[in-house]
Write a protein that binds this DNA or RNA. Structure first.
Lengths: 140, 140
DNA sequence: ATTAATACCAACTAAATTACTTGGGTTTAT
DNA sequence: ATAAACCCAAGTAATTTAGTTGGTATTAAT
C-alpha cells in the first residue's frame, strides 16, 4: 500500500510550482535540481499532469510550467489520482470501471471500500495552498 | 497505492477463520477452495500470520488453523501490517525505523503523515467481528 | 503399523511493475 | 543563429509480485 515515486515526486514538484504561483513559468530543470530528481523522469510526470489539466506549459527559452489554477483549487487527490491512477486500494473498489468476478458485496470488499473512502477524505481535503501555508508555519 | 494480493487474500482468509471461530481448526485447503486461491500461496501468508501471533495451528490429520483470539480482538490493521508491512504510504513516514535523507519535515512528508494517519484510523477501527456482523446484516 | 490428511519449509521462477535512460524532435526569447 | 526549454516514443535494468515446485514432519483414524 505504498505510493510510487510518481506520486511522491509529483507532490514534491507540484509543491514547488505552488510556491512560485503567479510568478510565471519555471523549468523542469530547476525543480529537478531543487528536489534532486531525474529531469527526464520528471518530464514524464509533468506530461501526465498537463494532460489532466493541472499544469500548463510554455515552450522555448525561458519557458516552463505553471499551475493551471490557484493552489487552493488543486488538491493532493487531484495530483495522486492523475499520477497513480484511480485503482486504490484495490481494483474491486476502484472507480475506473473494473468489477470483480463475484458481483456480490463481500466482507472484504466492504472493508476496502471504507479504506478507499478514508484515503479520499484525506487527500481531497488537502490543497497545495494548505501545503505552502503549513510549511511556512513550521519554518517560522 | 494498491494492496497486494497478500493483504487482500489474507483478509479474505482471516474472515473465513472468523466465521468458524470456536469450532476448531480448519484446513488451508478448505479456505483455498472456498475463496478460489492457491493453496501453497495461502500457506505462505498463514506462516506470516502465525509468526505474528494472529493465528494458531494444529498439525496432522484433522488439523488446521484457528484465530489465536476472539475476532473482536483482531483488527484489519493487525492483518494488513502483518502481511504488507508497515511502510505505507511511503518509507519516510513508516514506523519501521527508516529516515529520509533530509531530516527536516518537508511539506510532502507532512501530507504523507496525514495520509498514514487516515489509513490507520480506518484499518485499526475495523475488527474481524465487525466484518462478520456487517456481512450478516447485508445477507439477511 | 499403515495410511491419509494435514501443517511446515525453502528455493525457484515467470510475469508485471517501477523507475528510470536514451535519443531524438520542436518551439521561442534573445 | 543559438541556447534554453518543452515534447515524445522507445528501450531497459532492477525490483516486486504472485505464485510454483518439491519436499519433510506430524497426527487422527483405521
Amino acid at each position: 500500500m505504498r505510493l510510487s515515486t510518481k506520486g511522491r515526486y509529483g507532490l514534491m514538484a507540484m509543491y514547488q510550482l505552488a510556491i512560485v504561483y503567479g510568478e510565471g513559468p519555471i523549468s523542469i530543470k530547476s525543480i529537478a535540481d531543487e528536489e534532486e530528481l531525474s529531469e527526464n523522469y520528471l518530464e514524464q510526470l509533468f506530461s501526465t499532469l498537463k494532460k489532466d489539466g493541472l499544469i500548463v506549459s510554455s515552450r522555448g527559452a525561458y519557458g516552463g510550467y505553471m499551475l493551471s489554477r490557484h493552489p487552493k483549487e488543486i488538491t493532493v487527490g487531484d495530483i495522486l489520482r492523475s499520477l497513480e491512477g484511480d485503482n486504490y486500494p484495490a481494483e474491486c473498489v476502484s472507480s475506473d470501471g473494473f468489477e470483480c468476478k463475484k458481483e456480490e458485496m463481500c466482507a472484504t470488499k466492504l472493508v476496502l471500500a471504507k479504506l478507499k473512502n478514508g484515503i479520499d477524505q484525506v487527500i481531497d481535503s488537502i490543497t497545495l495552498q494548505d501545503m505552502v501555508e503549513e510549511s511556512n508555519t513550521i519554518n517560522s
